[in-house]
Design a protein around this nucleic acid. Structure first.
Ligand SMILES: [Mn+2]
Ligand SMILES: [Mn+2]
Ligand SMILES: [Mn+2]
Ligand SMILES: [Mn+2]
Lengths: 141, 141
DNA sequence: TGCTAGGTGTAGCCATTGCTTTATTTCCCC
DNA sequence: GGGGAAATAAAGCAATGGCTACACCTAGCA
């Protein structure tokens, strides 16, 4: 089972490969705001757990296991960002909150949140009703 | 700022004092499924940070700071349990998920989730509509 | 072709938070 | 009041995941 930190790295690596075709230590470090040395250490761990194949100074390649996991992690992250957006959380809080909670939700919860998003997507009036309640509560205080 | 672990301990301590009038090391340990020695260590840390006053072998007392924080933590936990329940997460997943995510949500997000609950509380049909979408999606797969 | 700067890797440190083991204190029953 | 069980405390160890300092590789330019 992957730790939260491992998930963050895998997610970032998957995204980098998806967008640029490769994932370098320095890019991973920048994205996660950690030092390159921390990246090297984690990459070695992910290699040992067969999420990727690593050749030092040469780069890395996701294994099928790593790709599959990476995609799930990226999708989950996006879903949660959408969720917080829909319920009205301020833009500047969303990324940090999602970074934190994404590692702690069962797939059951993820599915239910997906359904909740579908609920609001089907009828825009619903989001409006929600926004009105928010306004009303704001006014009270 | 309190770490996730510190929050778990504070929450548990607040609840024990609220329910039984006192919080003993062994009760805290049982609630958090941790060894008593770990509890002692954390209590000493919480004392150093002035969340409580600790006298060894004698017990502990929450400071005003600790009480205020404890209450907020307990309320937050309950709110999140309600949220997961309302969106249809299985009973047996709820506690573990909440234990994880509670430490990673901004108060902005907490407020928005509160509002979302109010939205469903105001009109029970809304929860029913959501449940129907869930059924429909289930049937598809 | 060889040098060098920037990217990468390693070693060793620290904080956090758990555990086990061992020592001490307290409390309750006799 | 004394003895023993239960509770509590302290010390030492381990895993995780950061960091710094320093060493090492390599691409690309002179
Ligand atoms: Mn994350
Ligand atoms: Mn993420
Ligand atoms: Mn928790
Ligand atoms: Mn909790």
């Amino acid at each position: 089972m992957a730790t939260p930190s491992m998930e963050d790295y895998l997610e970032r690596i998957y995204k980098l490969i998806d967008e640029k075709g490769y994932a370098r230590v320095s890019d991973i470090a920048e994205g996660l705001e950690v030092h390159p040395s921390s990246v090297t250490k984690m990459i070695q761990k992910l290699d040992k757990d067969h999420y990727l194949i690593y050749e030092k100074y040469r780069g890395l390649m996701l294994t099928p296991k790593g790709k599959k996991m990476g995609k799930r992690l990226v999708d989950r992250h996006l879903l949660l960002e959408n969720f917080l957006t829909v319920i009205g959380v301020q833009e500047d809080n969303i990324y940090k909150d999602v970074e934190g909670i994404e590692h702690h939700l069962s797939w059951d919860s993820i599915t239910c949140i997906e359904t909740l998003l579908e609920y609001f997507r089907r009828d825009p009036n619903r989001m409006e009703d929600l926004a009105n309640i928010r306004k009303e509560i704001d006014a009270d205080s």
